[in-house]
């Protein structure tokens, strides 16, 4: 029996199929979950994919957070269910208060789409154990509302508790994917909750799982192999 990883489809989700594919390539079984269905079909973990759920109306992730499927995801995430939020999924997780802070429009007001250099700050989460801390990875980034903000107290707490999981690599040529792409405070690209089971990040690991496409590297695959190992060894 391999691990079953649910991928939620909201109206306006874009990357649910790519995420299912990434799950399959990592060796797990992807399970499609529907936003109107509270039933998580007994999956072992859930990914909230990228896109523009509910058109990003009101605020990105604000309406999805109240969808039936999220009722169960929120309840079970608090009880330890591993959840990964990518891009719009990260926005949903902050709106659902499963992760602290909030996402706002990019500081330059433009949609951005490029390969992005990230530094792995923590390999201690459920979704990053196949990385090593300090490792630099290159995965696609594409968003409008990617500016991570939180108050100073929250930012200090995240840093002190080792809960900043990914940072944009600030130094280097923008043309090569370096630099803070959206004005996120302290160059934060991804964070985790206290237990390490819930992780959210703006860039897209699911688009970097095969050498043929994306960045030409498979830097996104360890997200999915990390959780698989965690679940199989559990």
């Amino acid at each position: 029996m391999t691990a079953r990883i649910g991928v939620v489809t909201f109206p306006g989700s874009l990357d649910d199929r790519d995420t299912q594919r990434a799950v399959r390539l990592a060796g797990a079984e992807p399970v499609a979950l529907w936003h109107k269905d509270k039933d998580l079909k007994q999956v072992d973990a859930v990914v909230l994919p990228g896109g523009f759920s509910y058109g990003d109306y009101l605020r990105a992730g604000a309406i999805s957070r109240f969808s039936p499927v999220m009722e169960t995801v929120i309840e079970q995430a608090k009880a330890g269910l591993p959840v990964l939020g990518i891009c719009n999924g990260f926005q949903v997780l902050t709106e659902a208060h499963l992760l602290p802070g909030a996402m706002l429009g990019n500081d330059h007001l433009h949609f951005i789409c490029r390969d992005q250099k990230l530094r792995v700050e923590s390999a201690e989460t459920f979704w990053t154990s196949d990385f090593r801390a300090g490792q630099e990875i290159n995965i696609p980034l594409k968003n409008m509302d990617g500016r991570y903000v939180a108050d100073e107290y929250t930012l200090d707490k995240l840093e002190a508790e080792g809960r900043v999981v990914f940072r944009y690599v600030a130094r280097g040529e923008a043309a090569h994917g370096y630099g803070n792409p959206n004005g996120s405070l302290r160059d934060i690209a991804g964070i985790t909750n206290e237990a390490g089971n819930v992780v959210g990040l703006m860039p897209h690991p699911e688009h970097a799982v095969e050498p043929l496409i994306g960045t030409g590297r498979t830097d996104g695959l360890p997200f999915f192999t990390s959780i698989l190992k965690k679940l199989v060894n559990a």
Partner: peptide, 13 residues
């Protein structure tokens, strides 16, 4: 309204 300490690039534009 965005809180006063939050950067508002749209307002700035």
């Amino acid at each position: 309204m965005l809180k006063p300490e939050i950067l508002d690039p749209q307002g700035q534009a």
